[in-house]
Design a protein around this nucleic acid. Structure first.
Lengths: 111, 111
DNA sequence: CTTTCGTATCGCAATATTACGATATAGTCT
DNA sequence: AGACTATATCGTAATATTGCGATACGAAAG
């Protein structure tokens, strides 16, 4: 017990939940926003910017990279991380799809 | 050690992360979608619909209610849960705000 | 070749989440 | 009142997440 019953749900539901999970930490939100603002930056910057340890930042970056919303390339000495635009748009599209489900029904006879 | 350092981040970042966390489980996605589809339904329905135990569903509903995206009223014998439209729109707005941050910058000189 | 710098990974401790049986609570029916 | 039904809460086991020091790794500099 304690393990998520992913088998009970649709691929779409599991996928959305997985995406949401990546966004479900303020450090990762902050990392994404910083990447957007400065467009491509190195890990070192982030350690300065956020107050977390280098190991922790690296771990968050790995999670962001694993789901594909962030990509990293070797930039000379250090790493250069940035938003992966296609994946970003996919996130955007899927969340909009979820949030628009209510609009289309648009019932006011709520409790 | 193990506890999220919410103190390091802005109110907005923590808020978004909190919202994402609620969406970060397929059961809760499924519950929201079911609530939208049938507009107001009882807990019992959900136990049939999803394959989870009654206690588990109730727990997920509580989390959804706690953040305010779902509201429940006593409907005769049972409970009637439904989407809280204002909060739903707030979610929608804040996620869009996040996802639109890239668009406005719109740089292609990515790594 | 050794040192240095930037980043990734390991290992662990603290905490959080998930699931569910058991039980409590509250309303309805007979 | 007693039985029944629907939902909430408690307690607990299994697992996942978070944070970080220590350490490994790899590229450039001396």
């Amino acid at each position: 017990m304690g393990v998520s019953r992913t088998d009970l749900f649709t691929k779409e539901q599991n996928g959305l939940a997985q995406m949401a999970k990546v966004l479900a930490h303020p450090a990762r939100i902050a990392i994404l926003q910083h990447l957007i603002k400065t467009n491509a930056c190195i890990n070192g910057d982030l350690v300065q910017e956020l107050g977390l340890a280098q190991a922790t930042i690296s771990q968050h970056l790995r999670e962001l990279k694993e789901i594909g919303i962030v990509q990293g390339t070797i930039e000379g000495v250090s790493m250069s991380y940035c938003i992966a635009p296609e994946k970003w748009n996919e996130f955007k599209r899927l969340f909009n799809e979820l949030f628009d489900q209510l609009e289309t029904v648009d019932k006011k006879n709520c409790c």
